[in-house]
Design a protein around this nucleic acid. Sequence first.
DNA 1: TAATCGTGGAT
DNA 2: TATCCAAGATT
Length: 358
Amino acid sequence: MLARQSPHAKSRDTIAATLLAWYDRHRRKLPWRALPGSMPDPYAVWLSEVMLQQTTVPAVKPYYEQFLALWPRVHDLAAAPVDDVMKAWAGLGYYSRARNLHACAKAVVEQHAGLFPADESALRALPGIGPYTAAAIAAIAFGRRAVVVDGNVERVVARLFAIDTPMPAAKTAIRARTDDITPDERAGDFAQAMMDLGATLCTPKNPACALCPLTASCLARQSGEQERYPVKAAKVARPHRTGAIFYLRRADGHVLVRRRPPKGLLGGMLEFPGSEWRSDFSQSDASAHAPVKGKWQRIAGTVEHVFTHFSLALTVYRGVLPTGAATPETGQWIEEHMLDSAGLPSVMQKVLVHARGK
DNA sequence: TAATCGTGGAT
DNA sequence: TATCCAAGATT
C-alpha cells in the first residue's frame, strides 16, 4: 500500500479521527445497526445492505423488519420458496435483488455452512453482492479494513478533494482518495460515518457545511462550490411508452394474472395480461393483445407510472369471461379479493385500483 | 462501457 | 409539474 505511506498520511488520520469522533456523537440509530462496541449479525448486515441498494432508509425499514420476522436466520431464508421471497419484496423495486437474495442465502448455506464469509473476494462471488456490498459487509460485519464507496461517499470525497472529473469517470480517483483516508481500525464505523455524513449534512443540495466536522479540510467548501460536486454528465431524456392491459374477471370472481419471465423488467413478478409497452404502440391494436376474444370495456383515463429509464401510460380494459369460453393457456386465476395480498409490483397495484374504479 | 433495472419522497 | 435521486449489481 504505497499510497498509504504517502505524505497524505497525516491528513488521512486527521480526517478519519475527526469523522469517527463525530460519528460517536451523531450516528443515526437504525434497526440493522448493533449497539456501539458490539458486532452485528452478518446476516442482518447483508440483508439491510441489499435492501438499501438504490433505496432510501424509510422505504427499507418495514421490509427489513418483515423479512427478519419471516426468516430470522439465513437458513430460514434459504429454505423458503423463491416466490414467497418475491412476494415479500413486492413494492420495494429492483426485483432481481430479491431473486439474488434468495440465491445468495442458498449459496451461503450450501457452500459456506450457513456462515457468511468475511473475505471481500468471497463475498463478491455471491449473487447480488457487488463491489460496494462486499466491502460494506467485510467492514461493518467483520471489522475488516475495506474501501467502501457508495453514492454518499462519492459525494463526500468528490467535495473533500474537489474532484472535477465528471461521473462516472471520477470513480477511479474517488476510490483512490477514499482508500487514502480509510483507517486501519474501525473501518466499518468509518464507512457508516461517511454515509451518515452524506445522508444528513453533506447532502446533494444545500449541504450543512456549518455543521460538518470536515469543513476545514474540504476543498470544495474552501472555494464555495460544494454543490457543484460531484460533477455529472448531462442526462438523457426519458422516453415515453404506452400499452394496453386487461382485467379479466371470471363469473366465479377470479381474475386472470400471469408471472413475468424471471429476468428483465419486473422479473418474476405477477402482472395482468396485456400488450408490450412500446413508444409506437397504437391503442387501436389493443384488442389483438387481449387474453380472450370478447367484449372489452375501456376504462376512462390511464395508469401512469415512471420507471428509471422510461415513463409509461397503460390503458386498462375490463372484461368478463363468457360462460363456456376457453380459458387462456397462460396465466392463473386468483380470487379477486386476494389480489391485494398477492404481492403485485407497484405499477400493477395501480392497474388494480384503476380497474376497480371508484 | 453503457444500458438496464422500481419506487416514492423531496424540492 | 418536472426533476432529482437513494447504502448498486448485472450484463
